[in-house]
Write a protein that binds this DNA or RNA. Structure first.
Lengths: 122, 122
DNA sequence: CTGTATCCTGTAAGATACTG
DNA sequence: CAGTATCTTACAGGATACAG
């Protein structure tokens, strides 16, 4: 079932809106996409994530991870180490967001390069 | 300059973070992505946009459009009709966000289908 | 280490009324 | 039609301290 990428009619507009709203609701907030982005590089422990995601408070990280887990995007595993550690990783469903993350990341890189080029010209 | 899509090393992680953060800052808020999504189907007037984007208040639409214009993603044109109308459209730079919008929209559709399938099974 | 419990604040965003 | 001006509120999100 190949999706019709060329359908930019007004008729298709409404469906896209619902889809966009749904996605953005799941990814709402300042941190979720960045958490998923981090985990897309492999499983990570709590403090490890906190280190990667600059500026996030423990409370926020905890809350966001719970949200993501509730929505089936992230899996939480308690490892019986001493002291205990917890491993977070993307579920297959979470990995299905990869194209979204990549698109956002790619655009950000282009944006960044454009800014740099702009500065050099000036 | 083909980007290395396969580079999922930890080393690349930091760059992705900055890129993701940049993009999400530009698209922050509840409405911007949906506005861009609407405009990706073609230019629209203010009230037309308001109609398409369910639930948005005039104040919000106005503010978000100003933000988008400031960031060079949207172009605003006053048409000397009677009474005046204003046309908003994506700039080429705004259109460059198309892959992002599409990725978000596509995922949302899949998500929606998954939910429907889940309901039918139960 | 992995969180939770409080407390606190700024701001996103809604409602309503109004202007050119 | 295309906005702006105010007022209000809810909640995201930060700081700090503490717990298992």
């Amino acid at each position: 079932m190949q999706k019709d990428k060329e359908d930019r009619s007004q008729d298709a507009c409404a469906h896209h809106h619902l889809a966009i709203r749904d996605t953005m609701e799941l990814l709402s907030g300042k941190w979720k996409i960045r958490i998923i982005g981090s985990l897309s590089f492999g499983p990570k422990r709590f403090m490890e994530l906190k280190g990667y995601i600059d500026g996030i408070a423990a409370k926020m990280l905890s809350k966001e991870l719970q949200d993501l887990e509730t929505n089936g995007l992230v899996n939480r595993t308690v490892l019986q180490t001493k002291p205990i550690t917890v491993e977070y990783k993307l579920t297959p469903y979470g990995y299905s967001l990869q194209p979204v993350i990549d698109a956002i990341s790619d655009w950000g890189m282009q944006h960044r390069n454009k800014m740099i080029a702009h500065l050099k010209k000036a």
